[in-house]
Amino acid sequence: MSWSAQTKMLKGASGIAAILLLWQLSVYVVDVPPHFYPSPAAVWRAFIEMTEKGILPSYIADSMLRYLLGVLIGTAIGCALALLIASSKLAMRMLGPMIDFLYYMVELAWIPLFVIWFGFGLPTILVAVVYVVIWPVLFNSLSGIRSIQPSLILAARSLGGSRWQVLREVVLPGMLPQAVNGFRVAAGFAFRALIFGELIGAQSGIGYLIFESTTHLQTDRTVLGMICMGLLWLFIDRNYLRPFEKATIDRWGMVVSHDS
C-alpha cells in the first residue's frame, strides 16, 4: 500500500473513531434510558452476543441469499420478458403502458399483499425483490432493443441468420449496455426491497432484526442491524456492482458513444 493511501485510510479511520467517541460521550450527556438511545458500547456488546449465539451470521446469510436469488431471478425474467415483448408488435402495444405504470408503483405497496399470498418468509421476500428487479431490467432492456439499428437486423437476416442466430449475434449484444444500466438500478432497488420486505414479511434477516428488536425495545440490536445493513450494501456495491459497472463500461462504453 502506498504512503498516500495509508494516510487516506488513517484519516478515514480517525473520522469514524471520532464519531464513535462523540456518540459514546453524548450518551453520558443526554442521560436517557439505554433502550431509548443505545451507546456504541452496547451495540458492540449486542454484536458480540448475537455473533456468539450464531444469530447474526445466520441472519446475514439469509438476507444475502434472498438478495442474490431475487436479483438473479428478477434479471432473468426481466430480460426474457423484454425479448418476448420486443418480438411481437402487439405485445409491445398492449403491455407497454402497463410496464410503465408498474415501474412507477412503489414496491412497498405490494408487500402486505405478498404476505397474504405467500405467507411470512422466503417466498414473500423473494417475490418482493424479484418484483423490483424485473421492471428496471425490462424497461431498460426494451429501450436497448428499440435502439438497435433496424439495418443491423436486416443485414444479419440477409446473411442467412436464423431467428435464434440474429437474437444471439445482434439483439442480445445490442441491448446489453442498456440492460446493464437497468441491472445497476435494479440492484439498488433490490436491496431496499429486501430490507423493507424483511421488516414486514420475514422471521429472519437484517430487516427483521431491525424491526423485531425495536418492538422488544432492544434498540442496541436495532442500531446493530442498521449498521450491518449499511456495511452489507457497501460490500455488495464495492465488491460486485462497481467492478461490474467498470468492466461493462470499458468493454461496451465505446459501443454506446460511437454509432457505427
Binding site: 436486416l154 443485414a155 440477409s158 449475434e169 449484444p173 459501443v255 457505427s260
Partner: peptide, 12 residues
Amino acid sequence: GVVFQEYALLPW
C-alpha cells in the same frame, strides 16, 4: 448480398 448506405456493421 445487401450493402446498406449506413454500413450496418456490428459495432461489437
